[in-house]
Amino acid sequence: MEVLLFTVLTLCALGVLSAVVLYFVARRFRVEEDPRIDEVEKMLPGANCGGCGFAGCRGMADALVTHEDISALYCPVGGAECMNRVASYLGKSAPVKEAQTATVRCGGACAQRPRTNTYDGARSCAVAASLYAGETGCAFGCVGFGDCVKVCTFGALRMNPQTGLPEVDPEKCTACGACVKACPKHIIELRKRWPGNRAVYVSCVSHDRGAAVMKACKAGCIGCGKCVKVCPFGAITLDKNLAYIDPQKCRLCRKCVNECPTGAIVLSNMKPLPVDKVQVKE
C-alpha cells in the first residue's frame, strides 16, 4: 500500500513540476502574434489545400490580416461567403471572384481513342508524359494515370474505369486548382460555374490537324470551325486547329453543340437543343 501511494504521489509531483516548467518556458518563448490571425484562420475552411497560393490556411490568414489590400487574395474553397465574412471582420473590402469548377477537357475514352502501345513504367501521368506521347495516337489527350485524382484533397475527382478518364464532381470541387497544376497535359481548366452545374465546353485540347485527330480519336476537335460560325455571341475562337469557348462570353445557347461533327463540344446537366431547330437555321 505504501509503495503504491509513493508511486502515485511521485507521478503527481512530476506532473505538476513539468506543468510549471512548461508554463514558464511557454511564456518566455512566446511569439507575439496578431490575435486576429487565429480568428481569421478559424473562419477559413481549414482544408490546407494550397488553392490560395499559400502553404496552408495559416499562411493565408496571416496574409489576410497583414496585407492592406486583400483584393488579390481569394480562398476558392470558402468562396465568396467566406471571403465576405473575413473581410467584414477585418474591416477591409472583400475580394470578388466568380464561382468556378474544374473541367476535364478530354473526351478520349477507351472506346473513342484506341490504345496503340502499352506503358510499363511508374504509374504517373507526369512520368509518362515526360517520356513520350502516351498510350494512344493522341499526344495531347489524357494520360489516364490519375495524377489529378491523387492531388485532390476534396475527393472531387475520380477515375472512371469505363472511360479511363477523370470525372469531376462539381458539388465537391472547390476550384482550388491543384488538379490543374498536376495535369502534365494541361487538360483541366477552371471554368465558370453556372447554377445547376450546367456547362458547355470543348472537351479536347489537341492542336493536331483534323486528319490526325480523327485517326487517333473519335471524340476530338478537328478544328473545322463550324462552331465559331454558329456562335451568336462570338464566344468561340479557333487557334491552331482547336476551338475554345470563352466561359465569360458563352451564354449556354448550345447551338455549337449540335453543329459539332465529332461531339467534341460537351454539354452537361442540360438538355440539347432540339435538332430540327438547328436544321431550320441551316
Binding site: R115, N117, T118, Y119, D120, G121, E135
Partner: peptide
C-alpha cells in the same frame, strides 16, 4: 504491333 514503352 503493340509496343511496350517504359522509361530507362
Amino acid at each position: 504491333k503493340n509496343l511496350i514503352v517504359a522509361p530507362s
